[in-house]
């Protein structure tokens, strides 16, 4: 069985893939492909945020008794990324290439530094600190599968 850091990191990479597909399609002025890839990216990101905010972070907070630290910052950054994703959607709907690339560059940097904190610290700590990491991982995987299929 995989671990929390491995599974969640792989999910980050999946989101990156869809994000890049959309951005590259826009660089090629292929708006149809861009809209498809963007919608997959947006859906994946939403599922990932839900898995963290509703399942992983509460378990981490309970295990470490830290509720106002890292998870709070991560929640705040999720909110900021949601705002940028909404800006991307506006640029995509208007088929405004320059506006899209400008926002996507910003989101990319924000997303990557956010991922770095999670992958280097939060996920490994969750794996170590929560009392039943395998059960927690199963819960996260089920959430992702049910939401993706639903």
């Amino acid at each position: 069985m995989t671990s929390i850091p491995e599974f969640m990191t792989a999910k980050h990479r999946e989101c990156d893939e869809f994000f890049i597909q959309a951005e590259n399609a826009i660089a090629d002025n292929n708006w149809l492909l861009a809209k498809q890839a963007f919608s997959q990216f947006s859906a994946e990101l939403t599922i990932h945020f839900q898995a963290e905010e509703d399942i992983l972070f509460p378990e981490f907070e309970q295990a470490t008794r830290i509720t106002q630290g890292p998870t709070q910052v991560m929640r705040g950054e999720h909110q900021q990324m949601r705002t940028l994703v909404a800006d991307l959607l506006v640029a995509l709907s208007a088929e405004d290439k320059d506006a899209y690339i400008s926002v996507s560059e910003t989101l990319m940097v924000l997303m990557q530094q956010h991922n770095m904190k999670e992958e280097m610290m939060l996920y490994p700590m969750s794996q170590q600190r929560v009392p039943a990491p395998d059960a927690l991982l199963t819960q996260v995987i089920e959430h992702c599968q049910i939401t993706e299929n639903g």
Partner: peptide, 27 residues
């Protein structure tokens, strides 16, 4: 640009309305 953005972005964690004043990284 990342540092300038991150420091402004951190201020917006407390007030999401302030995000309207955030520049994009390109700017």
């Amino acid at each position: 640009p990342f540092l300038s953005y991150t420091h402004l972005q951190n201020l917006c964690l407390a007030d999401f309305n302030a995000m309207s004043h955030l520049p994009y990284m390109h700017d």
